[in-house]
Design a protein around this nucleic acid. Structure first.
Lengths: 338, 338
DNA sequence: TTGTAGGCGTTATCAA
DNA sequence: TTGATAACGCCTACAA
């Protein structure tokens, strides 16, 4: 049986009120009393009951995040880093982190959000893996529920977000490849509804265009943000009669599979075939060969998102923040050989 | 303003009691009334307030998991898979999943558990990354709080757990290496307090012994379960005057760094140097070359843990279950060349 | 400086 | 079959 504030009060022969005020740092309580209360509370092992507290001040001090489970098995270190960031920053602000899993756009996903909102289970939510038209944005914005996103959907609402300009940075990868002399550059993407795909693909196309290279639909293949997807897409590309000399992947995970496929098929990555990723996942620092990629500070982005969300929830900051994050091009042996 | 049960009642000119009973499937309510209630509830968008509900029946229908953040940045796909499993299975049983982050053994970790227990925030917790002597086990067992673990600490309490017999399976890796002719086999481990290290290291030593190989302390190096740790450990091993011909790593993440270091130093992995991992992380299927490893079904293990925990919480199953999971040795090119 | 009383949204007990 | 009422643990306006 957990000790309640009542137990503490009885133990000290004080009223519940006084104990509550002593614990919550009110001024109108004798210093001596406060000390006695604090001592007793800690001795008895008192911890406020969260449900009761929530019921009073209508805030759950909880942030929600739904892990988008599109792949058969979610095994992307991106999410480990992301959740670690969400967790750390939440703790820092005295918030709890509620996590659930659901496939994007699924029934379950909708129910989860509904439950969280209407049941007042969370005070705000963090979204990523945005779609071009994202029902979550519409739903949350219409219900005026606090949320922040990584990347923005195209929905015409104002809301807080962190953006990375995937288009521009993917363009830099293409610049890099072109500067190495590549003229047949392939792209492995993913679900075209995803904002990250749209941005990065636009960067790909823009890059080709900027260098006067022709767009060849044969060189554009769809993966699924897994290494398996990359593996199969690469096999397809590399068995073309006129295969590409470079493959730019929508993310590191995909690139991982491409590295494997290419080498298995006898290519020397970094010499006669260049491969690039995108994300700069910490756990992928040691691919073989190391991957040229755009490094995105996933952990700090997650922290930033939570910080922005908390500001919104507590009303500390008026209006919606739109943050741009600078990324870093990391040139490694997967494009420049050794 | 979210709609409460009171709103539904007023809307229908019924009492709160009746609405509550209709919603909760009690028998003593007229079928017609029930239909009206259900219809109104759904139209008004009623969702029960979780805090209020919790306060009544003392269960939060929530499971807790603390992500052990020992590394500078947590970037191991193991945890993405693990959390995905926890999330999926929790949903299936109508539970929420509360996640937080803390370094093992830290102040924050202790506070988090205390808060969860005493504040009745969660009904049970899932533990992994067990220590040989794990304060969490002692604390939870003494407080008779429901929990399940992946691997068991040495603490003398009875509790539910899933085990994989890392010792035996690591031994099979050694058998495999020996059968390939290796006689100088190195081991890269991690914090000796960790149960997975102890088990796998015991498997290493047992394996050597079984084949009459001498144990050479020079060949045992400490990593930190990151690819960076593996990278540096491998450099150390491979610059020995008499380097090993095989390196068995405590996990896949470490092995990833070893693959990189070895190839950078000019070794041909699978030919003149064999490397093995442990975990069989889905996201690491496509390392270069593919890694010989012990495949552990992380996702299903996580599901199983939640299932067991829920059984414990709901009292559906008496006693504590001790489940043994069979693993699979996956032989790939990192040991058998091509 | 301390105590009394009422209420947050539900569910359970008891009476009608 | 339905409704009034109390209670869960906490906080706070108001009274003492």
């Amino acid at each position: 049986m957990p000790v309640s504030i009542r137990d503490v009060a009885q133990h000290l022969n004080l009223s519940i009120t006084t104990v509550s005020r002593a614990l919550n740092g009110y001024e109108d309580v004798a210093e001596e009393t406060r000390q006695r209360v604090l001592k007793a509370a800690s001795e008895l092992g008192y911890t406020p009951n969260r449900a009761a507290r929530q019921m009073r001040h209508r805030f759950s001090d909880t942030i929600g995040y739904i892990l988008p489970e599109d792949a058969p098995r979610l095994s992307d270190p991106f999410f480990a880093e992301f959740i670690a960031g969400l967790g750390d920053e939440s703790v820092k602000h005295g918030f709890e982190l509620l996590v659930t899993t659901a496939a994007s756009g699924s029934q379950e996903e909708q129910q989860a959000y509904r439950k969280w909102l209407h049941g007042r289970e969370v005070d705000g939510v963090v979204l990523n893996r945005m779609h071009l038209n994202d029902w979550r944005v519409q739903y949350l914005a219409q219900n005026k529920f606090p949320f922040v996103t990584l990347e923005r959907s195209l929905d015409p609402y104002d809301y807080a977000s962190v953006e990375t300009n995937g288009r521009q940075w993917f363009g830099k990868l293409i610049d890099h490849l072109v500067s190495l002399g590549h003229r047949r550059i392939a792209y492995i993407g993913t679900n075209p509804e995803l904002k990250i795909h749209a941005d990065r693909f636009a960067g790909y196309q823009g890059g080709l265009h900027a260098h006067g290279l022709e767009y060849d639909p044969q060189l554009v293949v769809t993966g699924d943000l897994t290494s398996d997807g990359g593996f199969h897409a690469a096999r397809q590309l590399l068995t073309l009669p006129n295969p590409p000399t470079a493959i730019a992947c929508v993310d590191d995970m995909t690139a991982m599979g491409v590295l494997h496929a290419a080498q298995e098929m006898g290519w020397t990555v970094g010499k006669n075939l260049a491969i690039t990723g995108f994300d700069g996942i910490e756990g992928f620092r040691h691919t073989q060969p190391p991957l040229t990629t755009i490094n995105q500070p996933v952990y700090s982005i997650a922290c930033r998102l939570v910080e922005m969300l908390v500001n919104q929830i507590t009303g500390k900051m008026a209006g919606f923040q739109h943050v741009q994050i600078e990324l870093v091009l990391e040139i490694c042996q997967s494009t420049v050989g050794k």
